Amino acid sequence: MLEIEHLTKRFGGNTAVNSVSTSIEKGKINAIIGPNGAGKTTFFNLISGVHKPSEGTITFEGRDITTLRTDEVARLGIARTFQATTLFDKASVLDNLIVGHRLRTRSGLIDVIFGSARLKEEERVCREKAREALDFVGLAHLENRVAGDITQEERKRVAFALALATAPKLLLLDEPAGGVNPEETLGLAELIRKMVKHDFTVCLIEHKMDMIMSLADKILVLSYGEKIAEGTPAEVRANPAVIDAYLGSDHADV
Rank of each mutant, 00 (worst) to 15 (best):
A147L: 13
T105W: 03
T67C: 04
G27A: 10
F11C: 12
I58D: 00
R124A: 04
A140K: 13
F60E: 07
D71T: 08
V125D: 01
L119Q: 04
Q152P: 03
E190H: 05
A216H: 00
V50Q: 05
E55K: 14
V112K: 07
R102S: 08
A117C: 04
L97R: 08
T42R: 01
R145A: 14
A84K: 13
T151A: 08
E175R: 01
A167T: 08
D250Q: 13
H141A: 14
G248T: 11
K169L: 11
I205W: 00
P53S: 10
F160T: 05
C203T: 15
G56S: 03
A241M: 07
D253A: 10
K120N: 13
D199C: 06
N36F: 08
I228P: 07
I113T: 12
F88G: 00
T232G: 08
A38S: 09
S23M: 04
N239S: 12
K169E: 14
L109A: 13
E5M: 12
V50H: 06
H51F: 15
S19W: 02
V137W: 02
S249V: 15
L162G: 07
L119N: 08
F114W: 04
E154I: 06
R106M: 06
G178T: 06
I78T: 01
L87E: 09
R80D: 00
N30G: 14
K26R: 15
N45P: 00
L139H: 09
V242E: 06
I113Y: 08
T70F: 00
E72Y: 13
N96V: 14
N45M: 08
G37C: 06
E175V: 15
A117W: 03
K90P: 07
A74L: 03
S54G: 01
K90L: 12
D64I: 13
E121Y: 05
Q83S: 11
F60Q: 04
N239P: 01
T8K: 14
G187L: 15
N144F: 06
R127K: 06
R127T: 10
H51D: 04
H141F: 13
T232F: 05
D250G: 05
G231V: 15
M1R: 03
K227M: 11
L164T: 06
I24W: 11
S21A: 12
H6G: 14
T85I: 15
I110F: 08
A167Y: 01
G248V: 11
D71I: 07
D149A: 12
R145G: 10
L46K: 04
H101R: 13
N96I: 12
K26I: 09
P182R: 05
A229H: 04
L134W: 12
E25W: 09
E25D: 14
V125A: 11
E183G: 03
T57L: 04
V50F: 11
D210S: 08
T41M: 12
I78W: 03
C126K: 09
V202M: 02
V20A: 07
L170K: 07
V158E: 02
G77F: 10
F136I: 13
L94I: 15
T42A: 07
T15N: 02
E230F: 11
S19C: 02
D250A: 15
L7V: 14
E175W: 05
E226W: 05
A189K: 10
T41D: 05
E175S: 04
V112H: 12
C203L: 15
H251G: 05
V158P: 06
L222F: 15
D64E: 10
A79F: 09
L87Q: 10
L2P: 01
E121S: 07
R63C: 07
